[in-house]
Nucleic acid binder design. Structure first.
Lengths: 199, 199
DNA sequence: TTAGCTATGTACCGTTCGGTACAAAACTAG
DNA sequence: CTAGTTTTGTACCGAACGGTACATAGCTAA
């Protein structure tokens, strides 16, 4: 029934290419010319399939969360609170310092896209971040193995903050090895029990 | 001897206006029109006094470091290692969540300016960051009051990372109060001694 | 083959970008 | 007043931006 000329590219594959470019160069640093070149299509095709640049970024962000960023949601399924946090921090290191992927985190990058056209994109990224932290807080509320000095909400915010810091460090060019050391040290600081009373 | 028409604006004041705009909207998110409007001058005056956009940003970055960012260098003069770190973290919170200043950190923002024209600016920001962390490391090497699990270089990197995370949180709209709580909790995690052996 | 549909490639739109040429304006030195 | 110097305002430059009109190519259904 539909007929018509068949599409000459794979939409999912093109979306992955767009993800790569947005991740590496940021929302505002990526032009439509960059996108079409990387995706191997022309502008009319891009608009027909993905909408405008802003809408395309929305789809890229969703794909980022269910692809490279899926470690975060997966980590919440770990059996103990400590393991949840360990997997989050180590996952952040692996994601942001990956050898084959751009350094840094697409979501953290997007928070810093402050141009006049990027307002909606920024709000999207912030919403995603809020939702992620809320999920972590709910998970930590059900853990009983964490150092007693922590309130779940505050600990979730701190873990989120450290994860953000790792993304910045990666974006600033810190080597994967160094980043891994920082992550491990952060875990050590986070998960060490406070001083026991002697005797 | 020189003569000539007198300048109709104060260069230092104009630089502060430029700092405000760059801080709030980022390097790439700020246009020359934004700058001239905020500084109250026209483009030829801007170019005559500050050079092009990239050179202007360099001067803005220097002013940022010796103005709002001076807390970081000052903190190194604190008497103990713990106080150095406390002042750094609390200073980062105050800087990035200031009521009268833009949220976030100009230097962290600039690391995420990934457009084609922003390469030099990004390298400037990274150089500043490296120098700051090196100074912190040297200071921590001379402290003897820090938890024994820390190597100075690793601790300096972790403090830097947490400071970056706070800047991201501020840029993402976290309230000053929440940010303060996160900072205090980070200090608690960083500076708490490891478990003592019981008896 | 033909009609109808969708995707493709090209060529273009108006706007905004960073940057500059140029003349009028405002000062100092003589 | 005049000559020389520097800043100011305006008007403009070529390039790149996001986005689109339009004709053609390539398919399906009859």
């Amino acid at each position: 029934m539909p007929g018509g000329r068949p599409r000459a590219f794979d939409a999912d594959n093109a979306l992955d290419r767009a993800l790569e470019v947005f991740w590496r160069h940021g929302y505002e640093g990526t032009s439509l010319a960059d996108l079409t070149a990387a995706m191997g299509i022309n502008k009319p095709s891009l608009y027909a399939v993905f909408g405008n640049k802003e809408q395309l970024f929305g789809k890229v962000l969703a794909r980022y969360l269910e692809g490279p960023g899926a470690y975060a949601a997966d980590a919440l399924a770990a059996p103990t609170g400590r393991e949840v946090i360990e997997r989050l921090i180590r996952g952040a290191v692996d994601l942001t310092a990956g050898e084959t992927t751009p350094h840094g985190c697409l979501c953290v990058n997007s928070v810093h896209a402050c141009g006049p056209d990027a307002h909606a994109v920024r709000q999207d990224a912030i919403a995603v971040r809020k939702a992620g932290e809320a999920a972590l807080r709910r998970r930590l509320e059900q853990a009983d193995d964490l150092p007693s000095r922590y309130e779940p909400a505050a600990l979730a915010a701190l873990v989120h903050t450290i994860s953000d810091g790792l993304a910045v460090q990666a974006a600033a060019g810190r080597s994967p090895d160094e980043l891994r050391q920082i992550g491990e040290l952060a875990l050590c600081a986070l998960l060490t029990e406070g001083p026991h009373h002697i005797e």
